[in-house]
């Protein structure tokens, strides 16, 4: 499946079916992340049930603390 993540086309493995899978795939599932799917910000509790489709546009921003 091809997704557009932060503006770049990215081919993700077929095991990535939900937003939760996607965050695991990018190893940001342990972080505090804001996810926008096709222009709508998702609540964290809906990550598990949010299914992804070919061509979805996703913006991912994770919080870091360094400075």
């Amino acid at each position: 499946m091809e997704l557009v993540i932060n503006g770049d086309k990215v081919e993700v493995p077929s095991t990535v079916e939900t937003v939760t899978n996607l965050l695991q795939n990018f190893e940001v599932d342990q972080k505090v992340v804001i996810v926008e799917l096709n222009g709508t910000i998702l609540e964290k509790k809906s990550h598990q049930e949010s299914r992804l489709s070919d061509g979805d546009r996703i913006e991912l921003v994770h919080f870091v603390g360094g400075g």
Binding site: K31, V32, I34, H62, F63, V64, G65, G66, G67
Partner: peptide, 27 residues
């Protein structure tokens, strides 16, 4: 990452963070 917080206008950091990040990577 950066965000500008204006009281009584924008969300605050607590609105954006459902939980406080802990144990992340540091510099």
């Amino acid at each position: 990452i950066s965000y500008t917080i204006i009281p009584n206008k924008t969300p605050c950091l607590a609105c954006l963070l459902e939980s406080v990040p802990i144990g992340g990577l540091t510099c």
